[in-house]
Design a protein around this nucleic acid. Structure first.
Lengths: 259, 259
DNA sequence: TGGCAGTAAATGACCGTACATTTACGTTAA
DNA sequence: TTAACGTAAATGTACGGTCATTTACTGCCA
């Protein structure tokens, strides 16, 4: 409709300006209903269809839109094929895939302040945090002790959720609209503390994974997580190649024998 | 040059046929000297420059060629920025990055047969294997116990190499031309055996990573590796995002305190 | 011999056109 | 009401051209 103008002084290519402007408008949610067609963009921006197609081609290879012959381009829905969830997600999802059912015992779900954790989330020490502590089971055996801290201002709605069978990320997405988009984690090999050992029913000589994670969503640090996973029955599996990079695959759940 | 023909019956787009043909010729090494320019391809294949540019654009976004204004496209050199080396490589390279020097004590380098390992490499049980066992140091402290098996038919040249300061992959590439291109690894949390604990100078309560890896090169399984890494001073770090996937970053070498 | 300017050649950017193919949608007939 | 048909609209493919900008190279001059 309204004619939009691009900078034609030659500073930056028209198709790149168009691409960036479309990404911006897409991020602003302008195209949640319908994405404009090529001809509409030609009209709007007063450029040739070739230029429009060049910009749309970029958006397509970036996975932002999908296009088919005969129908208008559409905003790509849920590019959630890749699981940006890290080692923990890989572990838990593979448990489910192996046929074992999962459930959790919620040991704590409250609001508390913790200066150390808060600083890791770039918050003041006194800012209240939602704290969730769960003992996670795979089948009848304990699998992991999972502790999560989130800013109360964002996660207050979680206090009424039932976490015995549903995942934190489902609840978070449904109640607050937040979805983890990237993060960083450290994986260590440790021996569980006696308390953890008792909770997890660990054999006396079993080691464990200790995973710390800082999760981001929409540019903000929203989650600090510390998880202790029994190491006697679970392993991380990964495949790597020059083409695909490093990719976590299924986690082993069978009995493990030392080589 | 010789005129090349494409299928114009409409079965597949011309630019896609051109793209595939160029990839094929590129893989065959036809363009090791010079990559043909756009106009040369127009002449060769009898298509418009637009079609040529469409095909070259794909090759460019795939990282196969690089193009600049005014000069002919060139074959991309060494797309080896990604290190298809897995967790171990990440661990050892980050040690070096932290300023510590590495060296190894070779505890064994010989030829032996092992039916179990051989079967993992898809070999007969009696096939001889080159066996290399090293104790790897970071600075003055032992870091890992590293055991590698490779088929003797491929790795015989390694028997005369000095592995106290050079890496296995360097030697393998130089002496045999083989380079690992993909593989699979399992990472477990374990407690070292008393023997391993003594070799690694592990504290009594320290856990360790146990990493098993099967490495491939040119479609063949060429390496089985088993490594025990001290868990009290080393951790795996990874970043993950929807865009970049899962990416191992630096490994922690500082003292680790439990959260 | 070295530096400099000029020229040729190549890619990048942009525009226009035509036709093919698929989808969406409204109309008609059973 | 439903199925089939036909038309309009949108994208995919492919052709053509023009100008700008950068690179590579040649030849001149000091």
């Amino acid at each position: 409709m309204s004619e939009r103008t691009l900078d034609r002084t030659g500073g930056e290519p028209l198709w790149k300006q168009l691409q960036h402007d479309l990404v911006r408008r897409l991020g602003a949610g302008e195209f949640d209903d319908v994405f404009p067609g090529e001809l509409a963009l030609v009209e709007d921006y007063q450029v040739s269809r070739h230029t429009v197609r060049q910009a749309l081609g970029k958006l397509r290879t970036d996975g932002l839109i999908v296009a088919e012959r005969g129908r208008q381009p559409r905003v790509a829905t849920a590019p959630e094929i890749r699981q940006p969830m890290g080692a923990l997600y890989s572990l838990f999802s593979s448990v489910e895939a192996s046929g074992l059912t999962q459930h959790s015992v919620v040991r704590a779900l409250d609001v508390r302040a913790d200066g150390v954790i808060a600083s890791r989330l770039d918050l003041e020490a006194s800012i209240p945090l939602v704290y969730l502590e769960r003992l996670r089971f795979a089948g009848d055996e304990p699998l992991a002790l999972d502790r999560v801290w989130l800013p109360k201002s964002l996660a207050e709605g979680l206090l009424e959720a039932d976490f015995s069978h549903t995942s934190l990320y489902n609840e978070l997405a449904e109640r607050t609209g937040l979805r983890l988009d990237h993060g960083r984690e450290d994986i260590r090999a440790v021996n569980p503390t006696p308390a953890e050992r008792a909770l997890l029913h660990c054999p006396a000589d079993a080691a464990a994974f200790s995973i710390n994670r800082l999760g981001h969503a929409q540019g903000r640090k929203i989650e600090w997580r510390h998880t202790v996973v029994r190491g006697d029955r679970f392993a991380l599996s990964a495949e790597f190649s020059a083409h695909e990079g490093y990719r976590l695959t299924s986690a082993t759940t069978t009995a493990i024998s030392r080589t």
